[in-house]
């Protein structure tokens, strides 16, 4: 696992927040928004709270069993639950303290377990997967542009020239409840997962991201700093954060599995 975050070349604050916990297989990335330093506060609450809550929940849960209540698998339910808690906490802070009014954050969370990964996201922070040297985006932005692409109004190429890049349709902490999108993906050994804030994918083409992660996959910290550097070389108009997770080997769930997780990640 490797992470890198940078304020970028233009902004004065870094409103991104990143946290990885290799021993529970968790990675969280949030891109905050809101005046003054409220964005940092929102993304900071999100990463800290989600990390803590997940840690606690993992003690209680058997991740392999489906959750009786609504048929969701336990990790999905867990992610829904921790994201809801983070939303509530940001929402409450935003509505009780005037300097935080209106703050919010986008979010992407990856929880690795039993040869799978559950990815929850909200807003335009993304998760990509590199498999067989092909980079694929496995989250779908909650943004005006993505809706326009879906409806056929814009092509992906035209969307890069749009002036409406900054509009997300969902975020954490804005409303009483938040709706993360959660999907479970099979994980293979050799896979590389990239989570990033829009500061990366707005500045660097997917093709170049693919080149960087595939050619530098043997040195994740270098790959992470290379991605940040590419975003900054291209103008670095926004904060840029990346998390890279490489799967060294299979990690089927076993009884003493928590203690073994650490060795699965670089």
């Amino acid at each position: 696992m490797a992470t890198a975050t940078h304020t970028g070349m233009v902004r004065s604050h870094n409103e991104d927040s990143v946290n990885v916990e290799a021993d529970i297989g968790l990675a969280v990335l949030a891109d905050g928004m809101g005046g003054y330093n409220a964005g940092e506060v929102a993304s900071g609450i999100a990463t800290a709270l989600i990390t803590d809550e997940t840690k606690q929940a993992m003690m209680r849960l058997d991740l392999r069993k489906p959750d009786g209540a609504n048929g969701e698998t336990a990790p999905c339910a867990l992610l829904h639950d921790v994201v809801a808690k983070a939303n509530e906490s940001i929402y409450r802070a935003a509505n009780s303290q005037p300097q935080y009014a209106g703050m919010g954050t986008t979010l992407v969370v990856g929880l690795f377990y039993d040869n799978k990964v559950a990815v929850a996201h909200i807003g335009d922070s993304r998760c990509y997967r590199l498999r067989d040297n092909k980079l694929e985006q496995i989250t779908r932005d909650h943004s005006l542009l993505q809706e326009q692409i879906d409806s056929g109004l814009l092509t992906k190429e035209a969307a890069r020239r749009s002036q409406n890049k900054n509009l997300v349709t969902r975020a954490l902490g804005i409303e009483v409840s938040a709706a993360p999108e959660v999907h479970v993906h099979d994980v293979r050994s050799g896979d590389l997962y990239l989570m990033c804030s829009d500061g990366l994918n707005d500045m660097v083409e997917d093709e170049d991201i693919e080149l960087a992660v595939s050619s530098l996959s043997s040195n994740l910290p270098l790959a992470a700093s290379q991605l940040v550097q590419m975003a900054n070389d291209a103008g670095g108009r926004d904060n840029v954060s990346v998390v890279l997770i490489k799967i060294k080997k299979d990690f089927p769930a076993t009884d003493g599995w928590v203690s073994k997780v650490r060795s699965w990640f670089i």
């Binding site: 928004m33 909650h142 809706e147 900054n166 997300v168 969902r170 975020a171 804005i174 409303e175 709706a179």
Partner: peptide
């Protein structure tokens, strides 16, 4: 700077 578009009346789940 990122902003949120939202439908104020309907809560998020039904949205995007």
């Amino acid at each position: 700077k990122t902003m949120v578009l939202r439908a104020p009346a309907n809560p998020a789940p039904a949205a995007p």
